[in-house]
Structures are given as structure tokens and as C-alpha cells.
Amino acid sequence: MEKKTIWHTMAAVDVRFLYIIIVIAIVIPLLNPIGLPLVFLDEVIDTVALMRSIPPGSLVYFGAECAAENSAELRPPAVAGARLMYELGHRIIIGGFWPDGCILVRQWLTPYFEEMGAVYGEDYVILGYRASVTSILDTARDNFILAFSDRDINGDRLSSMPVMAGLNKASDFAYCFVLSPGGPGTGTYTTAWRATGEVDLIIDVPTGSMYNSAGNNYQSGLTAGLIGGLNGGAQFEQLIGHPGEATRSMDAQSMGHFAIITFLVVGNIGYFQIRRMEEQEKEAIKSGGS
């Protein structure tokens, strides 16, 4: 009969035990922050520098491409981005082609805009959800107001708002700041506006799982800035001097990552131990048989 060792038990462990370890690893740092220092990546530093180089009064397109499930990763950089844009005097035009995007971004940003004294219609406007992303972005190349039917999320006329002054077409934007958890996302704006030469600067704000492919676009120059995942959001918050949700979450993320590394290491130690024991058993059987 095969002898059951601790390694066999661990190899067949109930996955719920692993989930409990993950929960403990994440919750403890949320309750008792460790305060580990961040490592700042060049891409985030360069993105902040890029935003700071844009003169006050410039028009900025904020792509609210997100859904509720992406809140944890995208809310911190969205808030930090909006803060920085307002502080630099940029006029923020928030639009999106995800059904929940504009509604969520409005929920996230309104408290901060009120706190900073930003006035709706003068400093920022929310365009609201539109279907048919391709045709709207194409139309916006020639006539932005027409593309969005001259209506904001509340049904008010865009053309009567001071924030829209001087915005005739997509090329009037100094840069686009696009949240990107999937499609439509940065790729859509890159195809519609960057590839056609309307907007040269697109800042990509992908989630962690999209960060893999976002690096390609940044390296090749298709996007001009990259703030990836919760880590990127935390760096962004620190660089603009307003540490927030992402910074507070980094300790929990660190512990979660290390829990997974522990699983990998322990799992492989167990695997090799079991393999060694099986080989020893085979040898014993062979020598016993011969």
C-alpha cells in the first residue's frame, strides 16, 4: 500500500484551503498597512512628464472605457488622472463606448471635482454612452459635436458649454487618456484617431491583464504614455502627490503575489519529493524482484 506522506496530502489539498490563505494574505495588509516603498517605472514617470508638458487650457479626451468589475484597478488612475488634468488647467471631455463607463466615471470623479472646485460645463463635461464606436470616432474626425449629437449625458447641449469652446474635431485634443480593460479601448482610439493622424498622443491606462499587450504599443510609439494596472496607478498617485486607493492596496497586492509564489515553491518541492519517493519505490521493487 502506498504510504501517504505530507507531500501527498499537500498535492491533493482542497483548493478552498488555498483560497483562505489568499484571503488572509490580502486582508491583513489592508487592515495593518506595511508601507513598502514603490519602485517607479520609467513609463509612468514619462507619462506624468508628458501630461505636465501640455499647456493649460488644452482640451483632453478622457476615455471612460470601463465596467464595474474593473473599478478596483481603474478607479485610482482615473481619479489621479482627472486630478492632474484639472490642476494643470486642462479641459476634460469624458466620453465612452462601454455602457457603464461614463456612469461609473461620473460616480468616481464627481466627489473629487466638487472638492477641487471644478465646474461642470466649464472645466469638464461627460458625453455619455454611445453605441457604434467606429462610426462615431470616424465622424468625430470632421465634426466632434455632430458625432456626439450635441448632447451630454444629461441631455444638455454641448455647443452651449464653455468647456467645448474651440473643439471642432478630434485633432483639437492635445492628448487622449484612455482607460483600457478590453475593447473598445486604447486600440480603438489608436486605429480611429492615432493611425489617421488626428491625435498624436494617447495615454494608455490598461488593467493588469491588458498590460501584457499594452507594452507593445508603448514600445513602438503607438501610445505616448502607459500607466498599467494597480501598480502603475499607485506610482501615478505618488508622482502627482496624492497617494490614494492604489497606494493603500499595494501592500495587499504584494502579500497576494507572495502567497502565490509560496504556492509555486511548495507545490514544486512536493512534486519533486513525490517523484523521488516513487522512483525509490520502483528501484526497491526492481531490486526486490531481481
Binding site: L36, P37, M250, D251, Q253, S254, H257, F258, I261
Partner: peptide, 12 residues
């Protein structure tokens, strides 16, 4: 292991 560790402050 390197990528997981390097993407969080604890790794650094």
C-alpha cells in the same frame, strides 16, 4: 517567479 516578485513593492 521573477515577474510576480518584480511587479510589487515587496519584491523590490
Amino acid at each position: 517567479v521573477f515577474v510576480i516578485s518584480g511587479s510589487v513593492p515587496m519584491g523590490a
